[in-house]
């Protein structure tokens, strides 16, 4: 966790400078597959949007500082097929999101799974990412629509 925040601090300047230039980036462009991460926090809300949904959650560091994280997940149709519903996560509940860190060091990650406090694991995206060999590699620009089990 501490290591994550070190990366976060280093990337803060980049975050300010970054402007959205296109609708979608591939997993390889956005995330570092050599940086698997597990981040625990409190669920804030979901953005059920295409090409990918976003899980918003807040993380309290050892120093008490709260950071708002976002985790990229399958689009609504893919999440639905994995059993997700609008009421799957309750605001304020503790979740642990596993996946991969963003390359730019911001508090953004690709989510593979969301684990609830009772240990329930919810599949949120391929461990290979949207552009990975078993991942949501489809359209548009990498947003695999049906979000089935990892393929190939």
């Amino acid at each position: 966790m501490k290591a994550n925040f070190a990366i976060l601090a280093a990337g803060a300047a980049l975050m300010v400078a970054a402007l959205p230039v296109m609708a979608h980036h591939s997993f390889a462009a956005e995330y570092d597959s050599t940086k698997p991460v597990s981040v625990k926090g409190k669920f804030v809300k979901m953005d059920w949007v295409n090409p990918h949904s976003w899980i918003h959650f807040s993380v309290t560091g050892d120093d008490g500082k709260v950071t708002e994280w976002t985790a990229e997940a399958l689009p609504p149709n893919g999440l639905y097929r994995q059993g997700w519903r609008k009421d799957s996560l309750k605001e304020g509940e503790e979740i642990t999101v596993t996946g991969f860190l963003a390359k730019d060091g911001t508090a953004v990650m690709w989510s593979s799974n969301v684990v609830r406090a009772d240990g329930t694991r919810m599949f949120a995206g391929s461990p290979n990412g949207p552009g990975g060999p078993g991942g949501p590699g489809g359209a548009p620009g990498g947003g695999r629509g049906n979000g089935g089990a990892p393929k190939e």
């Binding site: 609708a23 979608h24 949007v49 949904s53 976003w54």
Partner: peptide, 9 residues
């Protein structure tokens, strides 16, 4: 297709 939706999110 939601153009720029994920950037906005």
């Amino acid at each position: 297709c939601q153009y720029l939706a994920d950037e906005a999110a």
